[in-house]
Amino acid sequence: MQPAIRLPAKLHRRVCLVLTEDAVLAEELLARKKLAVDVLGRLTDRALLVRPGRVEAVLEELRKMGHTPSVIGKSV
């Protein structure tokens, strides 16, 4: 059996990202001014790039909006 080919890829490290279930939800988030200022760009219709160092502020705003975001990469 031949070993699988190694796929050429480029890494983007330390990315602050919000993924939503659907595009409408992403629109809803972007309509929130306090949150939109911390969004640098929209990678796809449901992937938002967050300004570095502003993840906590985004989380706080999401919670204020009544969302319960799943925070990936921390555990208590």
Binding site: R14, C16, E21, V55
Partner: peptide
């Protein structure tokens, strides 16, 4: 909603 604080 999933928030990645420092993803690769």
């Amino acid at each position: 909603i999933s928030v990645f604080g420092s993803a690769t």
